[in-house]
Design a protein around this nucleic acid. Sequence first.
DNA 1: GCGACGCTTCGTCAGGGGGCGAAGCACGTT
DNA 2: AACGTGCTTCGCCCCCTGACGAAGCGTCGC
Lengths: 218, 218
Amino acid sequence: MASLLADPARAAMLQALMGGEALTAGELAKVAGITAPTASAHLSRLAEGGLVAVHAQGRHRYHRVATDDVARAIEGMMGLAAVASPRAPWRGGETLRQARTCWDHFAGRLGVAIHAALRPDLEPVAGGWALSDSGARRLRAVGVDLDRAHTAASFCRDCMDWSERRPHLGGGLARGIAETCFAQGWVRRAPGDGLSRRCVNVTPEGARVLREALRVTL
Amino acid sequence: MASLLADPARAAMLQALMGGEALTAGELAKVAGITAPTASAHLSRLAEGGLVAVHAQGRHRYHRVATDDVARAIEGMMGLAAVASPRAPWRGGETLRQARTCWDHFAGRLGVAIHAALRPDLEPVAGGWALSDSGARRLRAVGVDLDRAHTAASFCRDCMDWSERRPHLGGGLARGIAETCFAQGWVRRAPGDGLSRRCVNVTPEGARVLREALRVTL
DNA sequence: GCGACGCTTCGTCAGGGGGCGAAGCACGTT
DNA sequence: AACGTGCTTCGCCCCCTGACGAAGCGTCGC
């Protein structure tokens, strides 16, 4: 299991997939800096190991992280690596630290800021957080689908942020917030390949909405 | 980082160290089934990677898991591996499933049973559980040092059990319970090497105390 | 239907890492 | 002081794995 994560090419692919998007084999090959045949071999091993799920569509084969268990374990390993070997900042680290996706929700300074802003409206429950009525009203007002968020395996829980060393929010609620931000155009994915695919940019209007409606201070 | 966990010899060593005891290089070599020189090379790499801490004492060098962050990440990987590749039961799996140590607390059926028994006295708080007054009285009565347990990074939290697929208790409280059980002779480490070092046996008196004082049903 | 494209399979090669034995070092013992 | 023990360093071998190019298979576009 660990040997699947131990290869640089596979690690690069998985980190790209941790952005939450399903990517084709060719894109992943470019991300990892290897040729198509090599990438194909790696991806079949990852699929066999249950780390990624494959979805054939036409002549493309889309790959994504299989389950959120897998995503959480990978994120945990990244956090451990960040603590245990605190080396020089990442390639393009500053952009990545600012705001990125973590599986299906936001991380980096944006994710931590959302955590801080919502904290007064969160009440601890077993294994995570519950949302107060006033918090639910504010989130519904900006269009977050709370009913769907409640159907997730975990409604709202802490998710350790490996760049900020503080938790951000994960679970169905955080996914719903991210989906709303993307749908409304408040947050856009950065262009580019590889790790930079995980970077996101908050648009001026998005910053205004987050500040005024959710009291998020970036 | 992941490549440190990916080697069979190093994985065997780390699993043995997850029992919580500090082991010498020679013991770990025997556990992993390799010679002393090879083990030495592996251990220096693990130490350099920050996964194990070394403590020289006389002509022995004792190794232990460096931090509980590391222990948690390793336990997480084991859980993922158990889910993703559900192969045949472990070597001596039944004994290991029954009762074992997980870093500094109990796991396996014993750990899950303690979780179930204490559950009525636990109240959810951010990142874990708090103990009710009645629960605190019961635990103090059997000699658990709750003041020391509160000084831990986490007083009481869930820790996924990779054999039972359900959480057991971790954190300072679970450590205190395990320490008390060992000190009072209610639970003893199994003899032997390797993974079996993590197995523990509940003595008849221990079973009686756990049942009557803590209402643990094995 | 023909070519272009995406992906996979096969065959082959080279590099790296794990393994051991021999020797060296440090500590404790007699 | 001399020996035994635990551990490390050094040198070497070998296997495993990842890398690519060529070729084959399926899907989409003109």
